[in-house]
């Protein structure tokens, strides 16, 4: 893949002309293909999404190298590149997994809507699986060994357990109740919903008050204590930073300590992930350790064993110490005055 990137750079260096030509070619194609009335729903491509993907920089002809001069009237289907031409490493890795018999690249990815793992929501990641593995059904099959499987499936992408994807972080998403559903389930808030709430039209401003593209604990607390007014909450998910494609059942994911027993040290890093106008997500780094804040950092995210608050630990210790005052204090005096009682009892 690296060599490919090099090639890409060389390509870029060799001349913007070539690139402009690709872009122009894309525009040519999109003149018809952005309009489902012209090409039909199955062949329509949403340029608002496609243009923001890295694949757009390649241009349509990179992947559809041979498009007949008479297209579409010639009836010859244009060629379609296979992913492994450019993603040899991923393809090799995936081929080694038995899951490659079950699903092809394009069953999980739309080549015209590709996103990096940090540009999609955790829910999006699971949507790639839910077409074949219905989430509610998965929650049921996983309960046989996983307590609160519904919670786990909701707060974890399947790939964090079913691939060796690495570097798990806590990603926070803004959620809201669908309008008019007072007791409905909270759902991810879309870009337009958030934009309507943001004062200057910048949805970052909803949390990032000082617009420094960094979410401090103070900003998080402010956001969370304001949710009576805004109706917005934060949902936390544990998401992987790097994704691998060796789909399998990993024995160590049955061991809860893989996630739960690492202690707070492993849960320091978190991000806020905001919906963008093109349907992807943009991340802002969050102050280290915010997930461990006692109450208002992330009111709805708590992983037993790893996101405990130190402040609460101290309060708890004081309470328990209070309980020890009586046995120790009274016990000492009792020992010192034992003669008094011995006399009385005889």
């Amino acid at each position: 893949m690296r060599s490919f990137r090099l090639l890409l750079c060389c390509g870029l260096l060799l001349g913007l002309t070539a690139f402009a030509a690709f872009a122009a070619a894309s525009d040519d194609c999109l003149a018809c293909h952005s309009d489902s009335a012209t090409v039909g729903k199955a062949f329509a491509i949403n340029p608002a999404i496609f243009d923001t993907t890295v694949h757009a920089q390649l241009g349509c002809p990179s992947c559809h190298t041979s498009v007949g001069a008479g297209h579409p009237d010639d009836g010859l289907p244009p060629s379609k590149a296979s992913c492994q031409e450019c993603h040899a490493e991923v393809a090799k890795e995936y081929a080694a997994s038995s899951h490659h018999q079950n699903a092809a690249c394009s069953d999980c990815h739309n080549p015209h809507q590709v996103r990096g793992p940090t540009e999609v929501s955790g829910a999006d990641m699971n949507r790639t699986c839910s077409g074949c593995h219905e989430l509610a059904a998965m929650a049921t099959t996983h309960t046989t060994w996983l307590p609160q499987a519904d919670l786990h499936i909701g707060m974890l992408p399947c790939i964090s357990c079913h691939t060796a994807s690495k570097e798990n972080v806590i990603t926070l998403y803004i959620i809201k109740r669908p309008a008019a559903a007072r007791f409905g389930r909270f759902e991810l808030a879309g870009y337009n919903e958030l934009k309507a709430l943001a004062s200057h039209g910048k949805i970052e401003g909803l949390i990032d008050g000082n617009e420094d593209n960094y979410i401090s604990l103070a900003e998080l607390r402010l956001f969370n204590s304001d949710q009576e007014r805004t109706g917005l909450r934060l949902q936390g998910m544990m998401t992987p930073e790097t994704v691998t494609h060796n789909f399998q059942i990993l024995a160590n994911r049955r061991d809860c300590s893989f996630c739960h027993a690492s202690g707070p040290a492993a849960r320091q890093t978190s991000y806020l992930s905001l919906a963008t106008s093109d349907g992807s997500y943009r991340r802002l780094p969050v102050e280290r350790g915010a997930v461990l804040d006692a109450l208002y950092g992330t009111p709805d995210f708590y992983m037993v064993g790893s996101t405990r608050s130190t402040a609460l630990n101290y309060i708890g210790a004081v309470i328990i110490a209070g309980g020890l005052v009586v046995p120790i204090g009274h016990g000492t005096l009792r020992f010192l005055t034992r003669r008094n009682r011995a006399n009385k009892e005889d």
Partner: peptide, 18 residues
């Protein structure tokens, strides 16, 4: 929220322990 719930559960448990 979950955090408040966990906090209450933990501190009450500490009280019981005391």
């Amino acid at each position: 929220g979950l955090k408040i719930l966990v906090g209450v559960h933990f501190l009450l448990a500490c009280c019981l322990c005391a």
